[in-house]
C-alpha cells in the first residue's frame, strides 16, 4: 500500500512536468513564462523554508542568503567556464547546502529567536562579501549572457520555465517524502519539544543538520538559474529581503505543517503578487504580502490548510 502511494505521487509529479513541457510548445506570450517562473521559484523557496521552519520549528530569516549563494555560485562558474545548467544547479545546491550545514551546527547553541537573528545576520554579512567581490560584479552588479539556444525549446526563457517547474515538483515531492517518513515525525517532535524529543531517542542534532542542509540546498538550487533569468545580477536584488518575507509568508498563509501549505501559499500569494505588480504597483504588492503575513499569523495560525480542515471538521460534525 505504501509503495502504491509513492507510485501515484510519482505519476502525478511526472504528469505536472509533462504538462509544463507541453505548455512551452503551445504558448507564445513571454510575459506568462516570466511570471510563472517567479511563482514556481517561490514554490521551491517556500517549500524549502518550510522543511526547516514548519516541520522542525526553526525560523530562518535568511532565505535570501541561501538563494543568493546559489545564484552567485552559478555566476562565478559562468564567468569561469560557462558549464551547462545542470552543473550550476548541482553547484548552487552544494554551496548553499554546506552553508545550511554550518547554520545547522549553530542550532547546538542557538534556539528560538537567537537562531533567527543569526540567519538574518548571516544574510547581511554574505551580502557584504558579495558586494566586495569584484569577480562576480561587486556592488555594481554584472550582466550575464544567457545561452542563445537550447534543444527542444524555442527560447531560453521557456526552457528556464520548464526547469523551474521541474524543480518545484521535485521540491514538493521531497517535502512530501520527508513529511511521511520517520525523519519527518522526528522533526515534528523536535518542533513540539526539543528536550522531550531527545529523551525519547530522537537524534536531534542529526535531524536538525539534515533539515538545515536540505532546506539550504533547495534554496541554492532555486537560486542557481536566477542570473540567466534576470540577465543582470547585483547583490541588492539577489539578497532582497522579499525572498525572506515571501518564503516565510507563503507557508504561513498556506499552513506550515504539511507539504500542501507552502504550495498553496506560494501559488496564491505569488500569483496575487504578479497581478498586483502589473495592475497596481510593486509597493502595493509588498503591502499585500505584509498584511497577509500579519493577518494569517494573528487570525489563522494554521493557514488555509488549517482553516479548510476546521470547516470540513465542522461540516462532518453536523452531518454525524
Amino acid at each position: 500500500m505504501k509503495s502504491k502511494g509513492h507510485l501515484l505521487h510519482i505519476a502525478v509529479a511526472l504528469a505536472v512536468v509533462l504538462v509544463a513541457f507541453l505548455i512551452t510548445n503551445s504558448m507564445e506570450n513571454r510575459y506568462y513564462y516570466k511570471a510563472s517562473y517567479v511563482v514556481l521559484q517561490y514554490v521551491v523557496l517556500a517549500t524549502a523554508w518550510n522543511i526547516l521552519g514548519g516541520y522542525t520549528g526553526y525560523v530562518n530569516f535568511g532565505t535570501a542568503a541561501f538563494f543568493a549563494m546559489g545564484s552567485y555560485t552559478a555566476v562565478a562558474l559562468i564567468k569561469l567556464w560557462k558549464p551547462p545548467l545542470y552543473v550550476l544547479l548541482v553547484a548552487g545546491g552544494a554551496v548553499s547546502g554546506l552553508l545550511g550545514l554550518g547554520i545547522g551546527y549553530l542550532t547546538l547553541r542557538l534556539r528560538g529567536v537567537f537562531f533567527s537573528i543569526a540567519t538574518l545576520a548571516l544574510a547581511v554579512v554574505l551580502q557584504m562579501f558579495m558586494t566586495n567581490w569584484e569577480f562576480v560584479g561587486g556592488g555594481a552588479g554584472t550582466a550575464i549572457l544567457k545561452p542563445r539556444s537550447v534543444p527542444f525549446f524555442s527560447n531560453y526563457d521557456e526552457f528556464l520555465f520548464f526547469v523551474m517547474a521541474s524543480l518545484a515538483v521535485a521540491a514538493v515531492f521531497v517535502a512530501w517524502l520527508i513529511e511521511n517518513s520517520w525523519v519527518g515525525r522526528g522533526m515534528a517532535a523536535i518542533r513540539d519539544n526539543e528536550e522531550a524529543a531527545e529523551c525519547m531517542g530522537v537524534p536531534i542534532l542529526k535531524l536538525k543538520l539534515f533539515a538545515t542542509t536540505v532546506s539550504g540546498a533547495m534554496m541554492g538550487i532555486a537560486g542557481a538559474p536566477f542570473s540567466y533569468f534576470v540577465v543582470f545580477i547585483e547583490p541588492s536584488s539577489a539578497f532582497h529581503l522579499d525572498y525572506a518575507v515571501n518564503s516565510l509568508a507563503m507557508p504561513m498563509v498556506g499552513g506550515t505543517t504539511t507539504w500542501l501549505g507552502p504550495l498553496i501559499g506560494a501559488v496564491l500569494v505569488g500569483t496575487a503578487q504578479q497581478i498586483a505588480t502589473v495592475t497596481l504597483s510593486a509597493e502595493m504588492n509588498l503591502l499585500i504580502v505584509g498584511s497577509l503575513l500579519v493577518g494569517f499569523v494573528v487570525f489563522a495560525p494554521e493557514g488555509l490548510v488549517g482553516l479548510f480542515r476546521k470547516l470540513r471538521g465542522r461540516a462532518m460534525g453536523r452531518s454525524a
Partner: peptide, 19 residues
Amino acid sequence: KPFTSMTLLENLCIPLEYT
C-alpha cells in the same frame, strides 16, 4: 512536555519508532 501537535497515539509512536 508532550508533543503538542500530535495525538496521544502519535506521541507514543515517537519513542517506539526511535528507541
